[in-house]
């Protein structure tokens, strides 16, 4: 084993431990903020593993999209929502817990079988392309055009949905109370009540 292989092996061990540890932290921490931050750690470690596989574009895209956008949005949602809710105890909760456990164990068994049955020998005959980004681009616009376009339509739908949800129609011309005349109302913009979407 020469130097480069040794470095790769050690980095792989470190990254694998980081991924698994952070993922366990996401699930096990009580504080949801910790889970969200650790999720970012999971994403970054996975980007490191991509980097070890020579997929540097995928690694950078992983950081940009998952850490820079998705994780930040999750954090935003957690920090802006300040809702406290008392959960009433549900009768027969064990049914839920039992079914969740069954599903999880089933998935675990399925994945383990998959792991043992797959042949993990790597086909080294395929040379890595000289221009990886160009190759990705060509594939996106030829073989994988339909999934690519479908994903863009999905994102467009999400965009329009977010606009519809966030849009508020303010009532024009309604003056706020003058100080001293009436007790000032709570600091809210007058808003037209929204009719529920049919």
């Amino acid at each position: 084993m020469n130097l480069a292989e040794g470095v790769q092996f050690v980095s792989f061990i470190i990254l694998a431990v980081l991924v698994i540890g952070a993922a366990l932290g996401v699930v096990l921490f009580d504080k949801i903020v910790y889970s969200a931050f650790l999720l970012g750690g999971v994403f970054i470690s996975i980007a490191g593993i991509y980097l070890l596989q020579n997929a540097d574009f995928v690694a950078a895209a992983q950081i940009l999209v998952y850490v820079g956008a998705i994780n930040v949005l999750i954090l935003f949602a957690i920090m802006l929502v300040n809702k406290k809710e008392n959960y009433a105890p549900i009768p027969r909760r064990w049914i839920r817990k039992g079914s969740a456990a069954a599903v999880s164990i089933g998935l675990f068994v399925l994945l383990s079988i998959m792991l043992t049955r797959t042949h993990w020998s790597v086909d080294l005959s395929v040379a890595s392309p000289a221009l990886p980004i160009e190759t990705i681009g060509e594939h996106l616009f030829s073989d994988y055009l339909l999934p690519f376009e479908l994903a863009s339509v999905l994102l467009l739908m999400a965009l329009i949905g977010a606009v519809v949800l966030a849009r508020r129609e303010e009532i024009e011309g309604e003056t706020t109370a003058i100080v001293g005349e009436l007790p000032a109302p709570a600091l809210e913009l007058p808003e037209r009540p929204r009719e529920p979407v049919a």
């Binding site: 540097d56 574009f57 950081i63 940009l64 850490v67 820079g68 956008a69």
Partner: peptide, 18 residues
């Protein structure tokens, strides 16, 4: 001189908000 170049900068700077 990584092939990713300038894209790497954009990816890295997206970590800062966290």
């Amino acid at each position: 001189n990584v092939g990713l170049g300038i894209f790497l900068w954009i990816a890295f700077s997206s970590i800062v908000p966290i």
